[in-house]
Amino acid sequence: MLASGHVVVLQEGPMTVATIGCVVLLAGFVLGSLYKAVRYVRMPMHVRWELYPVAHEKGKVSYGGSYFEELDWWTKPRETSLVGEVKTIAEEVFTLKAVREHNPKLWLPSLLFHYGLYLLFLLGAALLLGGVADGLGVVGLGWLGGGKVLSLWGVVALGLATLGCCLLLLRRLGDPTLRNASSPADFLHLWWLLAVFALSWANWLVVDREYTVAAGFVKGLLRLQVGGSVPALFVAQVLLLGAFLAYLPWSHMTHMFAKYFTWHSVRWDDAPNIAGEAYREKALKLLMLPVSWSAPHIKGDGKKTWLDVVQERGES
């Protein structure tokens, strides 16, 4: 078969454009994502801005209650539930609950699209694990039931993702208000992904129905092997996908991890500043920062601190 022949060539030949491109672009993805995540982590403590229901409120989450409902709440032990947070996040990730409840027209396209992406991610992870296992001499991709299972998996994943992507694109283009409220980036992302999916289908149909080229490529990539050539169509797919991933951290698609911050660190951050908690030092440091807001009632000159301005009365 065409594909298996190329796998052998790939493993033994010089490093290809695809390999170099893939390494560079994946590095871009990883470093870009890390940069963005670290940026959020390093942002200073903010004032509380929680929004109920808060998923970890034990026994009260069903109606959105909080510890403020308890008389002398500060004297009582605060009971939180990690399970509550995990459950809410899982419900959101696997059923797109908020979209289903508030935007039903977009729910099915969005659900198909996201499930397609989840399955494609798992396929990529399986190829990666297979490559690692093979490299360690443990076991190849046999544990997945062979190429036919991978092939079916790929079809289902690509099918869902492509269908979802097309439906989302149609909605954005066909609904005048949604089209009007979209940014150029919203269209770029969908068209770009559609192009990646189109190449993936072409590869699946013409080159790599059982993902043997892909498996060999991943294996070579893990060993940073140089060599040979792979079909041009496969190279195009790898580079287009790689470029998309490298771009992703600079787009709103980082919501896949930013949700941790938007939900856990903002929406559900209801931890009270009671004795023993570590806010004092942080707050003191922040209150000593210089203020340069220029309005007459502040007149921040870049030297006065927050502590200074909040103790003034200000001019009208």
């Binding site: 508030h102 935007n103 409220a181 709103h252 980082t254 930013a258 911050f261 920062l289």
Partner: peptide, 26 residues
Amino acid sequence: VENNWTFLQPLQLTLDHCTHCQTCAD
């Protein structure tokens, strides 16, 4: 950070992540 540490993280997260899906509209 200096001038808006009070809300910087929530604001930046909000500026960075809207997909314009309009789930909020109704």
